[in-house]
Structure formats: C-alpha cells, structure tokens
C-alpha cells in the first residue's frame, strides 16, 4: 500500500510546484542576476537596453569603487551604527521588560498584550506621521511633556544631533510589541522548577533574573539581536517620512540612498551596486552571528 502510494502521481508534483517556482524564478532569481549585471554598467534606467548601441555602457567595478571610495557611504554607515547603538539596548530592555510583565499570571494580561501590539499593526507611514507631529519642537506633545518636568525639549527632527534619536524613539514604540511577543514565547518555555529550586536556595528576584531568566533566554535574545541588526540596515519608511534623510544628511541611510539614486537621480547601475553592498553587509552579519552564537548561547537546560 505504502509502496503504491509513493509511486502514484509523481508528475503531479510539477503542477503543484509550478506557480511558486515560476514566482521564484521570475521574481527572485532572474532579478538578482539581472541587477548584478546592471551594477557593472552606467545604465540610467530610462534608455531602452540595446547592447549593440552600447546601452548600457559597461563600466566594470567603477560603481562599487565609487561607492566605497566616496565619503557618503561611510557617513551613511555611521548613521546606521549610531541608530543601532541607541536602538539595540533600548529595544532589548523595553521588550524584555514588557514580556516579563506579560508573563505574569494576573487578570488583564490579555488586554495589555493587545495594547502593546497595536503599534506593530500600524503602518510605518502612519506611525512616522504621528511621530513627526508629536515631535514638533514647538507644537508637539513630547516637548510639552518635557516642559512639565522643566526640561527644555530639543529641536528633534530639525536638529542634526537629535533627528536620529527621534527616529529611534519612533522605532522603539513601533517594534517593542513585536519583540515582546517573541520574548514572551521564550519565557513561557522556561521550566518553573528552575525558579522554585532557586527560591529554596535563597536567590532573590534580581539573582533569579540574572542567573536563570537571562541565560535561559539567550537563544531568543540572540535571534532578536540578529533580526534587530537586519532591521536596522533596512531602515526606510521612518526616514523617508520623518526627515527625508535630513537635516544635512544626518539621517541618510542605505535603503533611502538606493531609492534616491534609482528613482530621483536615475543612476540605476550605481543604485544596483549599492543594493549588492547592502546585501553583502546583511549576509555577513547573519553569518557572523550564526558562528558566534555557539560560544555564548545556552541551548540546553
């Protein structure tokens, strides 16, 4: 019986896979090779491609060399690292705290879980517009609250020093619920016996947090850090809506640059090369993290 079923309708697999494979080839594989070729040309994205007429012109590694030798790429990279330096510790602290609260067995927990998740459901464009409004230096709510405490609020998105922190603030608000839910999944997987045993041994709340919760949560934490780093290199809607890369380029980031070069300056070749550099960076991060994880992550327990 089992044998006959194995043999039966093997060619059917082809038809079942056809739509998805067509999509994979047409929208994933072909575009990557196509763009790889474009990244070695000076194509503007407008002139019809005609190799005999020399369109697009082959420029070898010029695009890559121009990007890496230019000052702009390193500034954009610095901006991204500045974002990560603020975003990563804050999002970890916020989402772990939220998850620990949501893991308590009290009534009303379900309501808080939904509330914390609402920003995740909101589109980034709406979220960015809300923050653009609430961060307005004179007429915004955030500086009004700071005024109550006697703190003079900064110019936020209009100040080159404070624009990126403003974007970080919006991003924490937007992403906390997402990562809290992932941490909650991790916390629910921790055996309560560990805590009971520690309590009997006289461990306090903080000791239990540092010596039980955090180590046992490390696979999830590792996962979240990787996702955060990848997210950080993909910053886009918040920058486009809130600051448009300004003031004076203080919030320019990679995807924003790629979009700009392709659709405002019509330098398709240059933009494609930039895409591949971004791709390489994300790939290296993922790979490095996968290697390092073995050293400090506790999978057993």
């Amino acid at each position: 019986m089992e044998h006959s079923r194995r043999q039966f309708g093997r060619f059917a697999a082809f038809w079942f896979l056809l739509p998805c494979l067509a999509g994979l080839i047409l929208f994933s594989i072909i575009p990557v090779f196509y763009a790889f070729w474009i990244s070695f040309t000076d194509w503007d994205g407008l002139k019809p491609i005609d190799p005999r007429a020399g369109v697009p012109g082959f420029v070898g590694l010029d695009n890559y060399a121009a990007i890496l030798a230019g000052e702009e790429f390193w500034r954009v990279l610095r901006n991204t690292l500045f974002f990560i330096a603020m975003y990563l510790p804050l999002i970890l602290a916020a989402s772990i705290s939220a998850a620990m609260l949501l893991n308590r067995p009290y009534r009303g927990v379900a309501v808080y879980r939904v509330l914390f998740y609402i920003p995740v459901l909101t589109s980034w464009v709406a979220g960015a517009l809300i923050f653009k409004s609430i961060l307005s230096p004179e007429y915004g709510g955030v500086n009004d609250i700071l005024r109550i405490f006697g703190i003079p609020g900064p110019g936020w998105l209009y100040d080159a020093k404070w624009a990126m922190p403003g974007i970080v603030l919006a991003s924490i608000w937007k992403d906390m619920g997402f990562f809290a839910l992932i941490f909650l999944g991790g916390l629910q997987g921790i055996d309560t016996d560990c805590y009971e045993a520690a309590k009997i041994d006289g461990a306090g709340v903080w000791q239990r947090f540092w010596h039980i919760t955090l180590p046992l949560l490390s696979p999830i934490t590792f996962f979240v850090i990787v996702i955060c780093l990848i997210f950080s290199f993909q910053l886009f809607p918040q920058v486009m809506i809130m600051t448009d890369g300004g003031p004076i380029g203080a919030t320019q980031v990679m995807v924003e640059r790629i979009y700009r070069y392709a659709f405002s300056y019509y330098k398709m070749g240059y933009a494609s090369a930039f895409s591949f550099i971004l791709f390489a960076i994300i790939f290296v991060f993922t790979y490095l993290q996968l290697k390092l994880q073995k050293k400090w992550v506790h999978y057993d327990a």
Partner: peptide
C-alpha cells in the same frame, strides 16, 4: 530592501 530595484526592472 536589497532586491526592489532588480524586481522593479
């Protein structure tokens, strides 16, 4: 974010 340009093309 790294493939939207080729996909657009």
């Amino acid at each position: 974010q790294a493939t939207f340009i080729p996909l657009f093309l």
